[in-house]
């Protein structure tokens, strides 16, 4: 067994040669106790959720000692929750909507960003400012007119459709997300121009350059952005609440919200909640590094 020598681990605030001083050691240990205990405190709600999801109904409204005494591993209520709530439908709806939105978002925003960073058409400045202005605007302000436009989605004299209570209403508005464009643009700006110029000299058409050269290079950023947008749309609640009324196209979040309104007992509600959190946890386990990197990247971008 090769042990790591202490020189491999470099500390900056509490270096090892200062740890001999008792004062520094005490501060370090108190700090550590604070951090660890806070981490445990933060994860207690999840433990409580799992405990109540496995409790029989008799013990839900009893004091804490009896709850802990009578706790047993018991997956009965997960089954019941799966039967009561049409989870498969909700999962399908959420997955369908968010995959479609992400797919269209990535295509549209990468195309726009490429033309803004490399081709620079003459309306470049105006378009850039218009895109920037949409980043500031909260979704609550445009929700009302969006609802009205979707209710009467029409070209005057040609057609008019009511898109409320359809998948279109869930899919179309979230596509317009300007943050993606800016992240793509900042990535494309770093690509060297000579590199594209050489392809142009060889007689490659502009669209083929974009499709065959630029997109394969920007694979990591596409992965990061698509995961983050997927999670955001999966978690969204405000817009589906306004637009959908029909339980056939409820997304997962709306479906869970409806359980509370139905007045189910708390153990079934909690088991439904745990089931609803499973996809997010799986996503996090698989794409942990990309999610963390992407969140830092999107927030420090501005």
């Amino acid at each position: 067994m090769a042990k790591k020598s202490s020189s491999d681990e470099v500390r900056y605030l509490f270096p090892f040669y200062e740890m001999k001083q008792s004062r520094v050691r005490i501060i370090y240990n108190i700090w550590g106790v604070f951090v660890y205990s806070f981490a445990i405190l933060i994860s207690i709600p999840f433990v409580w959720m799992l405990i109540t999801a496995m409790l029989p109904i008799n013990y839900i409204f009893s004091p804490l000692d009896e709850v802990i005494k009578n706790f047993k591993l018991n997956f009965e209520y997960f089954k019941k929750a799966w039967e009561i709530v049409p989870f498969s439908l909700y999962f399908f709806n959420s997955f369908f909507v968010s995959i479609l939105v992400v797919f269209v978002q990535i295509i549209i925003s990468s195309m726009a960003a490429y033309s803004l960073s490399k081709l620079k058409p003459s309306i470049y400045h105006i378009v850039l400012i218009l895109f920037l202005s949409t980043v500031l605007i909260p979704f609550e302000t445009i929700a009302i007119p969006l609802y009205l436009t979707l209710k009467d989605f029409s070209l005057p004299g040609i057609f008019s459709i009511n898109l409320i209570n359809t998948y279109w209403a869930l899919i179309l508005p979230p596509i317009a997300n300007a943050v993606n464009i800016f992240i793509f643009k900042s990535f494309f700006d770093k690509l060297p121009n000579d590199f594209l110029e050489s392809a142009r000299v060889d007689g490659c058409s502009e669209i083929r350059i974009f499709y065959n050269i630029v997109l394969p290079i920007s694979k990591p950023i596409i992965v990061v952005l698509s995961i983050i947008n997927f999670v955001n749309i999966w978690n969204s609640f405000f817009w589906p609440l306004i637009v959908t009324n029909d339980p056939q196209i409820f997304t997962l979040m709306l479906g869970i919200y409806k359980i509370i309104e139905d007045g189910q007992p708390w153990n079934i509600v909690m088991s439904a909640v745990t089931i609803s959190m499973i996809p997010n946890i799986i996503l996090f386990i698989v794409f942990q590094r990309q999610i963390m990197k992407g969140i830092v990247f999107t927030t420090l971008q501005e």
């Binding site: 981490a39 445990i40 933060i42 994860s43 709600p45 999840f46 999670v231 999966w234 978690n235 609640f237 979040m253 869970i256 919200y257 909640v273 609803s276 959190m277 997010n280 946890i281 996090f284 999610i291 963390m292």
Partner: peptide
């Protein structure tokens, strides 16, 4: 451990 609450969707 600190990051899990941020990942759980707002509704659950």
């Amino acid at each position: 451990l600190y990051f899990i609450p941020f990942l759980t969707p707002a509704v659950p």
